[in-house]
Design a protein around this nucleic acid. Structure first.
Lengths: 334, 334
DNA sequence: CTGAAAGCGCTAACAC
DNA sequence: GTGTTAGCGCTTTCAG
């Protein structure tokens, strides 16, 4: 019983091994608690079932997994990979060099990128040397990349449809519009299109740049509360921003949803915990992670060609939105 | 210029290499974009700067990184490892075999375990073959393990001290007390001790078993609201549970904090987003992750002996707690 | 069907 | 200071 026979049995190349021998080998493996060494396998075979999940490591500090959305997707990716006997390297990176270092150093079979803006992705100069899945990005130039996106256009559309169906005719879109993110511009495009479809004039949809943080929302909300002729239907590109908005508005003396309606995005746990509970656009993070893993392994194992997968979104109606009340109209009129 | 010389320069064994040669080598590396292959290095040297972060992969589904606390610590661990040029494998595991598989397959330099109950840890039968840091567990038998904990006793103590200083004399501890977690029992012990120190009788501190979920808190809150002679000072072992409690109490017709005060644990973002904002015990997740990484690398590189590091906690007072009002006393008396 | 030889990219140990 | 030899644990190739 040579080394070779064992290797063949382990790898399932059982065509040239007698069933009896194979069984003996398997027994021995079980008894000895033998674990094949992926390192040696990688060295000789060039692959060892290892992929990387790369997130932006922003200069400030440990912002790797702050967003609940990203954490959820990361967990789902790990589970999907584990089910197919792959391991996952979690890695923060900013520069193209850092990325290349990880990939080459570990001879990764593939990588999944999440949380990068399109600008940051461009800076990473992905060369497609290794199968690459990009989550939530519109970036599409150059070498072949696989994509997983949620249907952001539809997300924006649903928000607009919901708000207009409640009678709101002065709308506002809040999000990081200046950061060159296709995700955000898709949501905005969908929001605009949805509004237009309901007969809202373009200039009745204002757009304001805001970071995706509670604080930014809070500031924006208080500012908004003091503004005359303010919109009554607000759409934020993240739940956390929407929650900040609600609090800011409340601090400014405006009640949500009676004075202003607010729609969020992601349907994170947070949305159910705030008062009033947040109407929001839900993404299926589990499906998103699984799709990314499946796409990547399809590319790695089957060399399937680059393609995009779009994950559907749904509107979850809660208490942060309600029928528009014309300003000045008495409460009884509601 | 032999392969050996290059290897020596790359690894900083520059004692036996002339500065001129070293410089030439470094130039060539920079020009060629050469990245040393960790796989080959691991095979021959037995180590390749790779550690594992292992979390419980519970049967239900993709619950790997649901807790914001765990996500934050994971991010911090990755950052600390990256700063020292290590890579991180993220892995869900349930059985001792799964764990051993990952460790042996990748010849991991060490592992960090987080999120396991003591019972689950026991089932993993950690043999200490590889340097192992356990986060948030009291598990301490058998082979040498390193530990990172937050000062849970003090966390409980601070909560009790805060509530009693506000005049509350009927207290309640809510958390997963039946799951054999030392973290929870430490918090409970601290809570009891703090109460006793303030002259509260033992039977005035009730304990109720509750999962660390919003839903469990909600149910418990509504139940509590209907109970006569209920406690007025509540302490929950997690913010999310505390938030559930608050909502349940409110649904049941009790106002927080006027009727009942609630203290949470972790100071997650959530605590600032709910109304009333949550008084809670804050852990420094960044320090926690860094401590885990430092402890592990100390063990890996310097073979420093097993030890524990305790991360301090602080009380963050917000609006979910207030002075106890004797039941039946008129509102004006507050 | 089974085994022996060669080598993946690198480094420890030892000559030169 | 520099080069040579051997081998980490495995798989590919080809000979029994």
């Amino acid at each position: 019983m040579s080394v070779m026979t064992v290797s063949n049995v382990v790898n399932g190349h059982t065509a040239h091994v007698s069933p009896r021998t194979a069984a003996r080998v398997r027994d021995a493996i079980a008894v000895a608690g033998y674990v094949p060494n992926a390192v040696a396998r990688s060295l000789v075979a060039g692959s060892a079932r290892l992929v990387g999940l790369v997130l932006p490591a922003r200069s400030d500090d440990i912002s790797l997994l702050v967003s609940p959305h990203d954490s959820a997707v990361a967990g789902s990716i790990e589970a999907a990979l584990r089910a197919r006997d792959y391991h996952l390297i979690l890695r923060g990176a900013t520069t193209s060099n850092e990325l290349r270092d990880s990939v080459q150093r570990w001879a990764l079979d593939g990588i999944i990128l999440m949380g990068f803006t399109d600008d940051e992705l461009r800076a990473l100069s992905l060369d497609g040397q290794v199968p690459t899945v990009v989550i939530d990005s519109g970036f599409d130039e150059g070498s072949p990349l696989w994509h997983v996106r949620s249907d952001d256009f539809n997300g924006g559309w649903l928000a607009a449809e919901h708000l207009t169906s409640l009678g709101h005719r002065q709308l506002m879109f809040c999000g990081p519009v200046s950061r060159g993110s296709q995700v955000v511009s898709d949501r905005l495009a969908g929001f605009r299109a949805g509004a237009t479809a309901r007969g809202i004039e373009d200039q009745a949809v204002s757009v304001v740049d805001a970071n995706t943080t509670y604080e930014a929302g809070c500031v924006l909300g208080t500012t908004l509360a003091q503004r005359a002729g303010r919109p009554t239907g607000l759409f934020a590109t993240a739940d956390i921003l929407a929650v900040g908005l609600m609090h800011g508005l409340t601090l400014g003396g405006l009640e949500v949803p009676t004075a202003v309606s607010v729609v969020g995005y992601d349907d994170t746990e947070l949305a159910r915990f705030v008062a009033p509970r947040l109407t929001t656009i839900a993404q299926d993070t589990t499906r998103k992670g699984r799709a990314a893993a499946d796409l990547l392994l399809g590319a790695v194992e089957g060399s399937s060609p680059p393609r995009s997968e779009e994950i559907g979104v749904t509107l979850v109606v809660r208490e942060s939105t309600t029928r528009c009340r014309p300003p000045g109209s008495p409460l009884q009129a509601v």
